[in-house]
Simulated scan of single mutants.
Amino acid sequence: MVALTFGVVHAYLGDTLDTASYKTLPCYLALFILAELFELALAYDALRLRNVIQLLGIVVFHGALLVFSALQVHETKIAIVPCYISQCENNHNFLWDKVMPYLVVAPCVIGASWILIMYWIKALYEEFGWVIFHVVGANPKLKSMYQYYQIFICLLKFDFFCFVGVTMQLLIVVLTANSAEFGVTIAAIPVVLILLAGCAYAVQREIKWLMSASLALMVAAMTYLYKLVRFYEPSSDQQYLSTRATLTVFTIFAFLLLLASFAVGIKCFYDFDKGLHDSKTQDLSISADQRYGSPPKAQERHSSYSTGGVALQPQISIE
């Protein structure tokens, strides 16, 4: 639907649109492509690992897509109508009337699919509920620590998407290549990617110095919230006019996710060296396949308590 919107607008107005406004629609299209690919990758990863926490994260992410698609209707109108007035003053709403149905369909489809996703994930929740028990055993403390670890890894993945979303909008729609802010935004990309990757590796391998450095950088990254001031201050508000609502939502979500990641990361750091290292580093998909597949053949055992050294019969695994 977003691609159809872009095609209709381009066919009617061509390259005569104002540059900043014209770049709004391809930016939205790129964000939707990124969001769909990201959600598919999350779903595959969650199903492969039988990760219930990540499945619940997909439900939240799909709801965020619903909000974003609804915001898109408002921001596309802001981008189209002022530019179209100057070219067709007697019928300036014609183009908007043409593309508005395509934009309204998107949140409707996403909302309907959200209900189906919640139904299927509820079924998967019941199906995969024993995986954590299989990995860490029946110890409730280990189970709680492992759940915090899964939440932290899931939050890091959503941090990555929000950061890429904000950066993409700034670089494509708002900033000019010769501005200092453009250079700072470009320089921040590898720093944030290294931060997220290093943080995930540190919490998995329980490397304390790397985890400490990652958490410190995470606090520094929260200062990115100052961008909200730039969106609304009089000296720069016109620069962000066509994409201000989306940028505001993305920036606030990114800050809240980063704050939650920091809090959960502190909890995971506190849980280092408490017996969870092996559960983190093993391949959970292999463990889960063993849990759901046929149990290995039981080996015969000899017991010193058995009379005459007679071998015990093969035992049947409880699984």
Rank of each mutant, 00 (worst) to 15 (best):
L71I: 01
A138T: 11
D97Q: 09
D97I: 04
I117S: 02
Q147M: 00
Y125S: 03
L124M: 14
V104A: 00
V109W: 12
K141Y: 12
W114H: 03
Y119R: 11
V104K: 05
I117W: 07
Y146G: 01
K122V: 06
I121S: 04
L65Q: 12
L66F: 11
K122G: 06
K143E: 00
V67I: 14
H134I: 04
Y148L: 09
D97W: 09
I78L: 15
F133R: 06
L95K: 10
S144Y: 04
W130H: 14
I132H: 06
G111N: 13
P140K: 15
M118L: 14
P101I: 07
P140H: 13
V81H: 05
G129P: 01
K141G: 08
V136C: 05
W130T: 09
E89D: 14
V131F: 02
K98I: 09
Y149F: 14
M100H: 13
C83N: 15
A123K: 15
V105P: 00
I151C: 01
L65F: 03
G111V: 09
L124T: 02
W96V: 06
V135N: 13
P140F: 13
D97N: 14
K143M: 08
N139W: 00
V135G: 03
L71Q: 14
N91L: 13
Y84M: 10
Y119W: 05
A64C: 10
Y102V: 01
K141L: 13
V105K: 05
G137K: 11
V136F: 10
N91D: 15
W114P: 03
D97S: 10
K141W: 09
I153N: 12
H74E: 15
L124G: 09
A106L: 01
V99H: 00
L95Q: 05
Q72A: 15
F133V: 05
V104Q: 02
N139G: 04
P140N: 07
I80W: 05
I78C: 04
V135Y: 09
Q147R: 11
I78P: 00
Y148A: 04
C83K: 11
A70S: 12
Q147V: 07
F94M: 08
A79K: 08
N93W: 07
Y102H: 06
K77W: 04
P101M: 02
Q150N: 04
Q150W: 01
M100K: 15
I78W: 10
V81R: 07
A138D: 10
Q147Y: 08
E75W: 05
V109Q: 12
H134E: 00
W96N: 09
L142G: 07
A106D: 05
H92K: 02
